[in-house]
């Protein structure tokens, strides 16, 4: 299972790359595999406020839909516009080109609520 060590993970299968006061957010390789072919990603507008563990968007696959939860609270500074035309990049490169939004972190302490790669790997193996 592909779980990069430099990211933080939420129990609902989102990842966050924290760099200074910015977090880049996406869904994990496990999540994209479970969903199957992704056909649309609904994302918030730049400037929208998001709250940790609350939905900020939705990921539509052929057969199923899933909420995209915010792994941390903050304000959306950028959305990945490329996903509009090619949502399948999430299937191909969940941690790279398949990123979804960037936020300006409003409460850095929330990072403590996220798992590291080892913790996420363990959760996934023992009962999702």
């Amino acid at each position: 299972m592909n779980i990069p060590k430099d990211l933080k993970y939420a129990a609902s299968h989102e990842w966050a790359r924290i760099e200074g006061d910015t977090a880049t957010i996406g869904i994990t390789d496990f999540a994209q595999g479970e969903l199957g072919d992704i056909v649309f990603v609904e994302l918030p507008a730049v400037g929208a406020k998001v709250t940790q563990n609350k939905p900020l968007g939705t990921v539509e696959a052929v057969k199923a839909v899933s909420d995209l939860n915010a792994p941390m609270s903050g304000e959306v500074t950028e959305v990945n516009g490329a996903l509009e035309g090619t949502p399948d990049v999430v299937n191909k490169d969940a941690y790279g080109a398949g990123w979804m939004v960037k936020i300006r972190i409003s409460n850095a302490a929330e990072a403590a609520n996220l798992m590291d790669a080892a913790g996420y790997d363990k959760m996934e193996k023992h009962g999702h």
Binding site: G33, D37, V39, V62
Partner: peptide, 20 residues
Amino acid sequence: GKMVPFAGFLMPVQYQGIIE
């Protein structure tokens, strides 16, 4: 094949991807 429980059986839900 990605095997999932279906109607009491382990069945392949997909191999390469549903759309393909």
